[in-house]
Design a binder for these strands. Structure first.
Lengths: 224, 224
DNA sequence: TTGTCGGCCGATCGCCGACAA
DNA sequence: TTGTCGGCGATCGGCCGACAA
């Protein structure tokens, strides 16, 4: 995915090593996070000096969560290594300035995540990222087109209404919440890239990982 | 699952070998149906004489489709073997009479499978399997409780109405259709076992295997 | 500035008898 | 006997401004 979008979604604390830098690989730390068991005979807790041969910035195809795949080289050891998005204490790769790429993240409130309602867009986010509205027309409304990190297109009705006036996303929003399985506490990241295209990313609260809601089997009594 | 329920769902043509009988195992036929590749070095197309050591009657946990797991013994070869529900030309195991176990199957019509409507219960099915209604009360209605082959309980509102009168399942039915992903052309099997308990099974049309419906991402234009 | 609430209006769900195959 | 249809009432989704934090 786009590196700037990746960083906006991963958050300011996200770090990953530069390609070519030397890092220590600790199987212990890997095993604690990996879903498949890690067992490399002869490698003990001391750590293994490696060279970073590649870093790929990716987004989970199901959850949209961003992560980095960091490939390591060793004399007799080569393995893909999936890190979490926050890997502190490793050398930082920085680019020079944001260069017109802007992003804004908001933690979803209960009202945002209720499928009954829309999404309250903070004023700063609307004015800095969303296309400008024609405030002379009433209702003051437009359809915005956004792509997620996988390139899938979404549209939202963006309206400026209420007393006092505020920015809201209505039609299209609840469908997005449903599809992405968002809950209150998750964050949404709105971004505008250099071409002016809108992107949307997701940062989930740890509690919402892998949660699944099963429908009910037992209808209520319904005697006529 | 209950052997009689299994047979009612598999259909009259279903056959499986008796335990202890001798059968030939053809890797070719197995490989054509298996989802995982079958590769047994040294076994060629000639077939392998085996003894049936066990037959288990099962229902797929996702689709409710019934199948038989037939275990085979050979001098130096033992493997679980999953057959389809129809395995002709193998010895037939028969039990003596139905002994009070009754079943009725119906192919779902468009009206049955439309989530808008209910299910038209054929008169013979209602009178031979469903609990008797009190026809003196109006509306003539009851809630029936049914278990699927996995033991999951479902309830349906069973009403006798319309001109001319007919049996219908209404409340609860459309939820069942949704959960089981039934489409027109699939069959539903209603059964009553020796204890008078109601069971429900499913036989799917081949076309509906593994079909998945994805929701739409793009809401229609909705300018106010 | 923005989170939550109740009102309200329109769309949809799903129960109904009519009618014909 | 039963499949399909249009009608229609109840429910729900979701858009709205009011109001207060």
């Amino acid at each position: 995915v786009d590196p700037q979008a990746w960083k906006a979604c991963a958050g300011a604390a996200a770090r990953f090593p530069a390609v070519g830098s030397r890092v220590y690989y600790f199987p212990q730390g890997h095993a604690e996070q990996a879903s498949s068991p890690v067992d490399i005979p002869g490698v003990v807790s001391a750590g293994l000096l490696c060279r970073v041969s590649a870093v790929r910035l990716l987004a989970d195809v199901d959850t949209d969560e961003v992560f980095a795949r960091i490939s390591l080289d060793h004399c007799c050891f080569r393995s893909p290594f999936i890190s979490s998005s926050t890997v502190p204490d490793i050398s930082l790769e920085e680019d020079g300035g944001c260069g017109g790429f802007v992003s804004f993240s908001k933690i979803l409130t209960a009202s945002d995540a209720n499928n009954g309602g829309g999404f309250s867009v903070p004023k700063f986010c609307a004015e800095s990222i969303l296309p400008p509205l024609n405030y002379e027309k009433v209702p003051t409304v437009q359809i915005i087109h956004v792509r997620d990190l996988h390139g899938v297109a979404w549209s939202f009705r963006h309206i400026y209404r209420g007393t006092p006036r505020r920015h809201l996303l209505t039609t299209g929003w609840c469908n997005f919440v449903k599809e992405k399985k968002l809950v209150a506490g998750d964050s949404i990241v709105f971004m505008k890239n250099l071409s002016g295209q809108l992107l949307v990313g997701i940062r989930r609260t740890s509690r919402s990982c892998g949660l699944t809601e099963y429908p009910r089997y037992y209808p209520k009594e319904a005697l006529g």
